[in-house]
Amino acid sequence: MIIQRYIITFTFIGIFAPMITIAAPPPGATPEDQGQYVFITRDKMDTGYTDALTTLSMTLLNAAGQKSNRKMLTHYLEVQDDGDKTLITFKFPRDIKGTGLLTFEHVEKSDDQWLYLPALKRVKRIVSKNKSGSFVGSEFSYEDIASTKPEKYTYSYKREDEHQGTKVWIIERYPKDPNSGYTKIISWVDQSNFQLVKQEYFDRKGSLLKFSLDNGNTLYLEKFWRPSEIIMENLQSKKKTILTFNNWAFRQDQEPSFFSKRSLERQR
């Protein structure tokens, strides 16, 4: 374990050493390389988190400003050489309390996804190609809440800019997955910490669908950045969702067997 920590620390320095000395635009011969560099660095910076958990709260606002709430406990497990595993347990609304969603993300093949329905004690397989579908009625889709692997996009670095006094890179990403709900995502990336501050999402028809703002990016265990809030606003439906992350905890020595169908049945 201690040895692992050292390795992590060295990798950490290895990544950050060139980053600190970076002159304004990200390195790379082509805009594609430059964009990819930023997102690969983001991914590398997050390696070694092992496992994490947080309580997510969602406030759904419709065009008339009417509110509706969601609350869920989310556990993450880092998987070497593949996508991560996620177990989401719903806490609110109370009628869906205990409903669980287990996802095994994969880099090469389709993700595996199971839904547990406590009223029926039933584990249902779900088609994970549902990337673009709304996540629990919110303005977030399944692909927005998944931890996106850099291999799933092609990139194009556009320019430097400033966003609320922060120096940012503007990078366009194009999903490779034909089931994605987007043709393009424009990301505003903070140059100092590689964190997202704003994103614009373009639908299958190529028109601007929604934008998100990441607020309160916070550093945990001196290594892992997480936003404390993401606001997603749909420009077509005028609906908005505020996603809040509470009490992030990392490296809780969560057993890999926790991310299983049998564990899904035990969540409350």
Binding site: V127, N130, S132, G133, S134, G137, G181, S237
Partner: peptide
């Protein structure tokens, strides 16, 4: 079988 069309009318599946 079950086959789902996503985002058919607005957010509906």
């Amino acid at each position: 079988f079950e086959y789902t069309f996503y985002g058919v009318i607005g957010q509906s599946d």
